[in-house]
Amino acid sequence: MISPEDALKAAAHMATAVPHAAALGFELVSIGDNRGAIRTPWREELVGDPATGVIASGVVTALLDHCCGLAITAGKREAFSTATLDLRIDYMRPAAPRMGIIAEAHCYKLTRSIAFVRAQAWDEDPTDPIATAQAAFILNGPAPLPGAPT
């Protein structure tokens, strides 16, 4: 059992140091109270529509998914891994051209094995979201299927 402070530190590290998070340039905005927020800065190579310079929706997907993971970790007092079970994303509008994106997630229900999370992403104004997400995660990683190679 590690201290809540160390658990938060480990969660903050996970938010930015996981290889794909680092590749997307994720920056920790806030963490705590079953919530987490992450920002990803705009970069030319993350553009999804070259005509407008708007960041790809796939980046928003990865950001929302990762941010949900952070919110779950923020509600636990020990280090553990999560895996996404399902993720639904609704895109309200494209992000503003050449703008970074912030996402905030709230883990509103945590059972022994499952976490339920809501998240939203915005560029300038949190009350005018780009996308919202609803997700479920399994805690401690998925159990291997019977007969599956290990």
Partner: peptide, 23 residues
Amino acid sequence: PHLIGNTFLPALHGGVIGAFMEM
């Protein structure tokens, strides 16, 4: 390597799989 979300398994980032399917 830059697509990894779990370095212990290792496994692709869930967001990568979602983004790949959407693309």
